[in-house]
């Protein structure tokens, strides 16, 4: 992964409390796992940013190296990799995702 991609990813991850690298957009998710991740974030009522990896192949490959995680979507909270769609679901169902947001002082306007 080039320096440029690495720093672009670091900026995306660092500048946003909650950012989801996904396939497609919240309105038009292009993959079941990505739409499930969006549904979870919507249920949590947290403000979040998304990055459509389908629009940027360099980010699509680079993010997998960045987190040592082979698939999309990928959720980051306060710069930390949280997991993919499965882990988001497991954590959400166990109430751990809401707890993480509280622990990390992420505003939940809803």
């Amino acid at each position: 992964m080039s320096e440029d991609v690495q720093s672009r990813i670091a900026t995306l991850v660092g500048d946003n409390d909650v950012v989801l690298f996904m396939k497609g957009t919240p309105l038009f998710p292009q993959c079941g796992f990505s739409s499930r991740a969006i549904a979870i974030l919507e249920h949590l009522g947290v403000a979040y940013e998304t990055v459509d990896v389908l629009q940027d192949q360099e980010i699509r490959q680079g993010i997998k190296e960045f987190s040592d995680w082979p698939t999309i979507p990928q959720l980051y909270v306060k710069g930390e990799f949280v997991g993919g769609s499965d882990i988001m679901m497991e954590m959400y169902e166990a109430g751990e995702l809401a707890q993480l947001l509280t622990d990390q002082n992420v505003a939940r306007p809803a």
Binding site: W69, P70, T71, V82, G84, D86, E90
Partner: peptide
């Protein structure tokens, strides 16, 4: 951690995850 657990399983699949194996819903 859950991430580590899943990464261990992905490592067992030797890089096929996200490649030939498109979707593995893992618990």
């Amino acid at each position: 951690s859950r991430v580590k657990q899943h990464q261990t399983v992905y490592a067992a699949l030797g890089g096929r995850m996200g490649g030939v194996l498109h979707a593995l819903q893992l618990t």
